[in-house]
Design a protein around this nucleic acid. Sequence first.
DNA 1: AAGTTCCCCTGTTAGC
DNA 2: TGCTAACAGGGGAACT
Length: 274
Amino acid sequence: MPELAEVETVRRTLEKEIVGLKIKDIDIRYENMIDCDINDFKSNIKGQNIISLNRRGKVLIFNLSNNKNILSHLRMEGKYFYEPNLNLDNKHVHVVFMLSNGYYLMYQDVRKFGRMWLRNNDELYTTKPIIEIGFDPVLDKSYDVEKIYKEIHQRKIEIKATLLDQSIIAGLGNIYVDEVLFYSKINPHKPSNTISIEEVEKIIKETIRILNLAIKYKGTTIKTFTSSHGVEGEYQKFLAVHTKTICPCCNSKLICDKIKGRTTYYCSMCQGEL
DNA sequence: AAGTTCCCCTGTTAGC
DNA sequence: TGCTAACAGGGGAACT
């Protein structure tokens, strides 16, 4: 569920809380969360200062004083809590960082889909997961429309499925991709190889506009299966089609179906035929 | 190289 | 009431 806007909101919140602090110790309670040797992970982190907190696509990057970085992908339900007390009753807390000011940074993930990696500064952008991440619509101030058009146009799958692929445009997930396609007036089922370069430009501009607006409102909070104690955003008030039933533009009934196994909302009137 | 399928997880909900 | 199966979904791995 956290998409670029939510991850950026988490980054901004955490940045104020933890940058400058030292990681005194780390407790990994669910080992599959870590994508490398647990002991290497621990020994490389313990005793390091948190220099900065960055982001690329949906990946959080904790830059440490030993030129290493903790990469964290929240996937579906990952959340960070920064609190003075350790909550051991919470069975969904899988990683605990003990900080130099006595506070705890706890990573909670009900579905356990999240992952963490450890990368050196010099390999950060040339190894997975970040090497797979394409144009970041919020961080990258310029883009090559021709290149993005080519990457989209050479695929035959539905445009929504292509936009969910982080290697072309990064940061869109199931909610914002529906919004972007609605405002771009493009049917999500349209084959990617029938998308024109003008439509690609529209998609990029709407992606930049919508993600920045969503960040302004601290992301979208939609009721998931679990009650969330994480960052509560406001952007759900501005959603045009995702989770809605009536088109805000023409008042016709929205269509709700599946693309790549993802629930998809769109207006067949406003977003045209295939 | 692109596309397809399976898999990881667990809380919630529909169905019997 | 209690059980089971289906479902939700981002992305990686393996395979075609």
